[in-house]
Design a protein around this nucleic acid. Structure first.
Lengths: 332, 332
DNA sequence: CTGTTAGCGCCTTCAC
DNA sequence: GTGAAGGCGCTAACAG
């Protein structure tokens, strides 16, 4: 910065001002400075700026998986919400591993984010302590924790799956199975499984038609394998709900390979409204969640909270419930 | 850190040492310090550390899209390669937009990464200048640029698509179409389209069976729509290669909706070996690229380059060609 | 094995 | 609209 200052014939302080959008610098001076910046290929050192201004200029977001359109849509939503804020979004993927989530959170906190967004409402005591001690706003997403850390933007996974089973009941299905949801790593998957159990219990349907598999992320292959098991154990099942669309798609393909007509012989429904659910043949019935909206709401909320803390106030904890929608397509 | 030092009855410098794995501190002292750290909930400020040590402890990776299993696998490969290095991987998604790639690169460079990995070998002059001026190792991936910035880990997209068309020819197909690849934003897609054109020209096949669509990322919907167009224009086409598996899957679903038997009436092949290609019914023939391997190789290479630069030397530019594999499945 | 001194590159604050 | 002084929190370098 001193080099740039010399070249432009000003002080370093003036260069610093010229490089901020709001800096009070005359147009002529700024032009000279920007030219010097360009000639020298100078790139501002934000590390030093962070240290002296106590503003790192980024927020951290922890998501379970990059390669999941729900979460990547949420990430894009956050990015969009933060576009005008001057805050960069730094993403970390936890791969559904709690220990990795902790490590990542600590790595992020060492860089002093101005706010943090995490996925889900279940965290290890250590992570909770870490987040609460960070002294920056925290948003939990994709769930409605009963004891939130601070802000929440999400929906009830249990409720959504319960509603899906009730819809299938209304369509006339009476022996409904469930695929997935036993992973100790995926609390949303477990919540959906609980929703299934609650619904079949309320409706007086047989409640044991579950093929639980423990891995997360759940995949198409899981769906195919689980469907094969379900067919073998409970051949009279007339509908199957799945922890995600990927699982439902795998189940659909398995049905096609075995000549089980969908929805004639068996109905299928997924969760998440992934692209493959929209494009498959037949198209999959699913629960659509506004993933992008979760991200935009969470990002905007975090921004407001950060702005508030900059003026010395603290935004009161907010709780945003995002609606979901059951989309009936061709598999029910 | 001073607070921790006081509580542990040592100097700040000793705390600093105790917090690095390698710091020469007696076990008793370290234990006292770690206890004080725990009691105070202290988290090291890496920003300040970066400033004084001139080592930011992270590398930046720019990928076109998070929600693409090829690129997210590559990201995971990089993460795995860097696991033991103490370098954190910071990901940025460019959404296939050059301008966003530039902005992201600059945002990363302001935080002084110790190395940079970018996707593809075509960059704006500005980005090239930025990367070359950064003074840190650079790796380009997923392509084999003729004029690389420095290191390269990739393969020839043109060559791979050419090989796929040749394989279809060997299988007896004589009127081969192509879907996708016209996006000015996706240089890999364009390279694959060039590979198709080169192959059909060499083989003396009709060369105009192309439904080019310009959007990136290419999607299943694009595949369905493009397939419908292709069917209308060139009903005698007997095989179709696609810029990606997602497009191929969309095309497959369109064929099923219209009752065109695959591969009986028309053969299909994709690119990338996505999960949906493995799990669809019928399973898709595709070009499998070792996405994770690209990431691991790039990450390991970058690490070596960074280690070299720490000892004052500069690693000579390397070029790693990653093999690809044509996987014949049920759609050809 | 531990402490002291100095400074990383910028921005806050105050002065003009 | 511009400049000078000082310090952000840590670590390199050197001393003991």
């Amino acid at each position: 910065m001193t080099d740039v200052a010399k070249r432009a014939g000003v002080s370093a302080m003036t260069v610093s001002r010229a490089l901020k959008a709001d800096g009070a610098v005359s147009d002529r001076t700024r032009l000279r400075i920007l030219q010097a910046v360009d000639e020298l290929g100078y790139v501002l050192d934000q590390t030093a700026g962070t240290l002296s201004s106590k503003r790192s200029g980024f927020v951290a977001a922890l998501i379970p998986s990059l390669n999941n359109s729900n979460f990547s849509d949420t990430a894009r939503g956050m990015e969009r919400a933060l576009e005008q804020s001057g805050l960069q979004l730094l993403l970390g993927a936890t791969d559904y591993v709690q220990e990795k989530e902790e490590r990542l959170a600590e790595a992020m906190l060492r860089r002093r984010p101005e706010g943090i967004i995490v996925t889900g409402g279940e965290h290890s005591p250590k992570l909770r302590r870490l987040l609460q001690g960070a002294g920056v706003p925290v948003v939990e997403t994709w769930d409605l924790p009963t004891d939130p850390i601070e802000h929440v933007v999400g929906f009830s996974n249990t409720g959504a799956m319960r509603a899906l089973v009730q819809r299938l009941y209304a369509l006339g299905y009476r022996e409904i199975g469930f695929l997935g949801g036993a992973s100790p790593r995926d609390s949303r998957g477990r919540a959906r499984c609980r929703g299934y159990k609650a619904a079949v219990a309320e409706l007086g349907l047989p409640a044991d038609r579950i093929v639980a598999f423990g891995e997360a992320p759940s995949s198409m292959d899981h769906g195919s394998a689980a469907m094969a098991q379900l067919m073998a154990h409970w051949p009279k099942v007339d509908a199957v709900v799945c922890v995600s669309d990927l699982v439902a798609f795998g189940a659909l393909m398995e049905c096609q390979r075995r000549g089980w007509a969908v929805p004639g012989r068996i109905a299928l429904a997924g969760f998440g409204d992934f692209e493959v659910a929209r494009c498959s043949h037949p198209r999959l019935t699913t629960v659509s969640v506004d993933s992008t909206g979760i991200g935009m709401t969470a990002g905007a909320l975090l921004w407001r909270a950060i702005e508030a803390s900059r003026t010395g106030t603290r935004l009161a904890a907010e709780r945003h419930v995002i609606p979901y929608d059951i989309i009936e397509r061709e598999t029910t």
